[in-house]
Design a protein around this nucleic acid. Structure first.
Lengths: 230, 230
DNA sequence: CCTAATTTGTGTAAAAACAACACAAAGTTA
DNA sequence: TAACTTTGTGTTGTTTTTACACAAATTAGG
C-alpha cells in the first residue's frame, strides 16, 4: 500500500497586456500562514476534478476572470513546504487574458486581486516567482512561433497595437513595414472596413481581426507561424 | 483542512536510437491489477523525494539505466483511475539515452524491460500511449531547435550517423551537403582525427564529437540552433 | 485657417540564406 | 581489376530577409 502524504494544487500565471505594459495577476491571501502575502491565483484540486477545470474554477473564484488561452506550464514542488503537515506539488498553468474584459474582484478566498507589471512583481509566496519567470520566458518564445498575441488584444485591433505588443513583450525594435508585410503574408489577419482613431492625434487606422479558423485550416496544411526579426 | 485522496507518480518516456530506428522503453508489470501488462517505467514518488530524483530512481530500479537527457514533459491524470482506491496524477518525463550504453535489466518491480520501435509500441497500461505520442512529437520538434540528437548517439559519431538520425526521426529526406554545411557552420561539432569504417564497405569516415561547452558558450551570445530544411 | 505635430500606410534594392544538384576519393567484394 | 558502397566537397539560381524614407490623414495650437 502506498502511503504518501502529498497534496496537489494548481496555480495560474495569468498575463494581461495593456498600452505597452505586460501584467501578471496576483491575489492576496486572506487566511493561513501567508495571510496578506501576494501569491498566484490557485489552490487545491478536488478529488474528481480535472486539472484544467480546477484552474478555471480558481480563477473564477479568486479573481472573477475567464481566460482566453490556457495551457499547462509545468509541475513544481520539489523544495517547498507550503504547509508543515504535508508536501504540496503544484501544477502551474500559463494563461492569457485581455484585462479590459474584466473587473478584478476577489470573491471567495482572496482578500484582493491585482495586476502587477511583470517588471514590478513583488516577492510572492511559495515558489511563485520562479513560476512567473518560467511563464514569462514561455510567453516570449511562444509569441514567436504561435499566434497567441491576439489573445492579449481586443478582438479588433490596430496594426500598431499588435506591433507594440511584440515590441514591448520581446523588448526589441521591430521594423514596422517588414512586420506588417510578414503578418499579412500569413493571411491570418484580416482588415475590417472600420476606421478609428484612438490616440489624441494622428491619422486614423483600420481595425484588424485575427482569423482563427483560417489559422486552424492553415495548420492542417503544415503552415508554420514564425515571427522573428530585427 | 484539505482532504484529498490523490497519489502522485512519475513516468518516463525514454527514447533510444540505433541504426535508423527510434525505440521507446517499456517495462512489464510484475504485480497488481495490470500484471504482465507493458507500461512506461515509473512509480510513486516518496514524500521527501524531488520529482527528478524519483524518475531517476525508477529508471535505475526498473530497467537499470541512467539517461543522457531528462526534462519534464507534462502532468497527466484527469481521466484515469489506475487504482480504485485513489486517483493518480502522474508527472511524465521525457528522456534520451544511448541504448548501446546499457544492458536492460528488470531489477526490482518489473518483470521485464524492453525497447519497442516507436512504430510498434503495443497498447500500454493507463494513459501511457498518450504520453508516448506527446513525447514523440516533442522529440521531433525539439530536434529542430535544440541539439539533443547528440544525446542519442555515441560520443564519437560519423556525420552520416547524425544525418540518418535526423532523417529517420523526422521522417524526411535531407540533402547531405546542405545538412553538413549547416551543422558545421554552427561550430558545435568538431572533427576528431580518428577515421573509421563501420559498415561493410565504403570509404572510411572521420569521427565527430558534439562540443557541449562551445554550445553553452554560444547560447550566452544569443545563438539559436536551428535545423529545418528539405 | 494655416503650420507643426502625430500616426498610418506603402515599395524597392542590397544582402543573406536556402535549395538544388554531381562527381571524385577511399575503401571492400567478387 | 571492375563493380559497388560510402565519404567528402562547391557553385548557382531562387527565395527570404533586412534596411530604409516619404506621402496621407488627422489633431492641436497659434
Amino acid at each position: 500500500m502506498i502511503n504518501q502524504n502529498i497534496k496537489i494544487a494548481v496555480d495560474a500565471i495569468v498575463f494581461g497586456y495593456e498600452r505597452g505594459t505586460l501584467y501578471v495577476l496576483a491575489v492576496q491571501q486572506r487566511f493561513g500562514k501567508l495571510a496578506d502575502r501576494w501569491v498566484l491565483p490557485g489552490g487545491f484540486i478536488l478529488d474528481d476534478e480535472p486539472l484544467l477545470t480546477a484552474v478555471e474554477r480558481e480563477l473564477k473564484e479568486e479573481a472573477g476572470i475567464t481566460v482566453n488561452y490556457l495551457e499547462q506550464l509545468g509541475t513544481f514542488g520539489d523544495d517547498v513546504k507550503r504547509d508543515e503537515r504535508f508536501r504540496v506539488i503544484s501544477v502551474a498553468y500559463f494563461a492569457l487574458v485581455n484585462p479590459k474584459n474584466f473587473v478584478l474582484k476577489a470573491d471567495t478566498d482572496a482578500k484582493d486581486a491585482k495586476w502587477f507589471p511583470v517588471a514590478e512583481v513583488p516577492k510572492l509566496g511559495y515558489d511563485h516567482n520562479e513560476m512567473v519567470n518560467l511563464a514569462h520566458q514561455r510567453l516570449k518564445s511562444k509569441l514567436t512561433y504561435q499566434p497567441i498575441g491576439f489573445d492579449l488584444l481586443d478582438q479588433e485591433f490596430l496594426f500598431s497595437d499588435l506591433e507594440n505588443l511584440y515590441c514591448s513583450i520581446l523588448e526589441r525594435d521591430i521594423d514596422r513595414r517588414n512586420f506588417r508585410k510578414k503578418i499579412l503574408s500569413f493571411g491570418i489577419v484580416t482588415e475590417t472596413d472600420k476606421v478609428v482613431k484612438i490616440g489624441a492625434s494622428g491619422r486614423p487606422g483600420k481595425l484588424f481581426t485575427f482569423d482563427k479558423s483560417k489559422y486552424n485550416q492553415l495548420l492542417k496544411e503544415n503552415f508554420q507561424f514564425d515571427i522573428r526579426f530585427a
